[in-house]
Design a protein around this nucleic acid. Structure first.
Lengths: 326, 326
DNA sequence: CTGAAAGCGCTTACAG
DNA sequence: CTGAAAGCGCTTACAG
């Protein structure tokens, strides 16, 4: 690999001059510039980004902390982040934390040592300080942990309200909500939306706790149906949970949506592959990822942000696990 | 962030001495070592990996080139690579190439400029030279493009044979194979396995082409069933294709598995979420990813490899889209 | 056992 | 407009 010295020698100028044409910065005579450009082309020279990093203390890399890329919600998000990053010349490093505080800390340290330029967080086991002390731009995606950090999330509360109202409009009279983990903001908000609607309208309901995994959902659902056989609708806090509910419901021969309506949350591709296809409150996942990346890069490049809190709208995807309300 | 200089000053030694204790290399007196260690602890010093990179021309980063992380086959693979990498202190950079030659070239260049230590390839649009000229260790995963490059793949041919034999044992007499793209080695091998079995046994069959996407699978399947209504089994080249077949078959009210048996290939989690749950030839996806990472790191660290070609076994996951053969 | 010095490949004041 | 020099934070011969 040729270095800037080789280019300088070949073009009969100093390395400073080569650097100037590389960075289009400072005065360079037409002639010198041409020679340098020719040298670069002839030698197929590429500036070494590690050396640049060392000087600038930046890396053109951004980090993306997620719980687990195997969870189907995240690949699309990651994909969006990467697409935008690539456009602006950034490389993204995806870190699976498993919501484990030690893994998170380990990654944070590794990223910092690499002069990472910014970080998108969809998980936060550490305290806000730990992230802010990194001294780099941050974006909180689908989470919220500090009002100084720009945040992208969807209208979880409103989406949950709509889902619940829709179940009620379609005639359900005893609705279960299978909620996600406590202190995970989206799960809390969805729960709150559900609760407010059923209480306002005086609808019989029950809430049970669950992880965002299908195994956990199936276990919880089995217990639920055993105890409360008259449940006629389930609002699940995620599509993965809804898939578990659906599986169990079919196993015990509930007719869907006649006996039981199910509505999920997220809008991952899995939903439409199921039979019956899953009705769900869809988040614009790709858009959220792309927006986060954009916000992060704006901060890195010292551009002003219009807003600090971005809330995107959800849309109900009407499919086959709910009855039509017409 | 403190630097090695700060540590040296604090410990009253030279930076060379600090470096020696950092790298456990060269002679350092007990006393000096203790002072340095204390200084490191007191200042919370972390060596800067960019500076190390510049000197060593290595980065403790490995690249993973995949077509698209949104394709459900890859997250698990990526996850495995990352888990192993983390264990050995490497960071992985995932690159979505969309099988696009220009994106691939762009990533290759970016990775090279960052002194990436090695590369795992699940896609190869460029010629083998382009990768080998990088001068870094490589592993080909689920692809094969040069006999100098260590390769990890599953026994696609054998798996396909087993799948086909299983359908025949269960009484199918007219079997369709929906094959993946040409010149993608796994797709070719699966096709060959299918073809050999049906020809050996004299079974009526038909082969149609398809992409590894559900949309493409649905389109192809619709045409197929229209033309050949007596098809009584489908061997799909991937689970995503199989999911598309299943969807279409249910739409036109085929009973599964009574009227139509379906078997996929891959063993992605989606398969068991479907109803009926998909019978499939499962690859040990996580294991393949982990093995690739291990092989790559062995090469990076100049350890000898036992083999150059690793072929892992597939296993049929008997689920609900095939009839039992007992 | 230890430090001064050169070097990894770049960038940018500074002087001319 | 241009080059010599210092510096980014490390590592490693080299000399002592």
């Amino acid at each position: 690999m040729p270095t800037i010295k080789d280019v300088a020698k070949y073009a009969n100028v100093s390395v400073a001059t080569v650097s100037r044409v590389l960075n289009k910065k400072g005065y360079v005579s037409k002639e010198a510039e041409e020679n340098v450009l020719k040298a670069i082309a002839d030698l197929n020279y590429k500036p070494n980004s590690v050396a640049r990093s060392l000087y600038h203390k930046t890396s053109k890399m951004i980090g993306l902390l997620i719980p687990d890329i195997s969870n189907p919600f995240f690949p699309e998000l990651a994909r969006a982040v990467e697409d935008v990053a690539l456009t602006y010349g950034y490389t993204v490093v995806i870190c699976n934390t498993d919501e484990d505080i030690r893994k998170e800390a380990q990654y944070l340290e590794a990223l910092q040592q690499k002069y990472i330029d910014g970080l998108i967080l969809t998980t936060n086991q550490l305290s806000a300080d730990n992230y802010e002390n990194l001294g780099i731009p941050l974006v909180a995606l689908d989470r919220q942990f500090s009002n100084r950090v720009p945040t992208v999330s969807s209208k979880n509360y409103e989406g949950a309200r709509q889902a619940t109202e829709y179940l009620i409009e379609n005639g359900s009279e005893f609705i279960a909500h299978i909620r996600g983990p406590y202190h995970v903001k989206p799960a809390d908000d969805r729960y709150q939306g559900f609760k407010d609607v059923v209480e306002e309208q005086g609808i019989a309901h029950i809430v049970v706790d669950c992880d965002f995994t299908m195994a956990s959902a199936m276990e919880v659902t089995e217990g639920l149906f055993e105890k409360y056989s008259t449940i006629d609708a389930v609002f699940a806090s995620s599509d993965i949970i809804a898939a578990g509910v659906l599986k169990v419901a079919k196993n015990i021969n509930k007719r869907i949506p006649e006996d039981l309506q199910i509505i999920g949350f997220d809008g991952i591709p899995l939903g439409e592959m199921l039979t019956p296809a899953l009705t769900t409150v869809a988040q614009p996942i790709y858009k959220m990822g792309a927006l986060s990346a954009r916000l992060l890069i704006k901060q890195i490049e010292k551009e002003p942000l219009d807003l600090i809190n971005y809330e995107v709208k959800t849309t109900i995807q009407y499919r086959e696990t709910t009855r039509s309300d017409t």
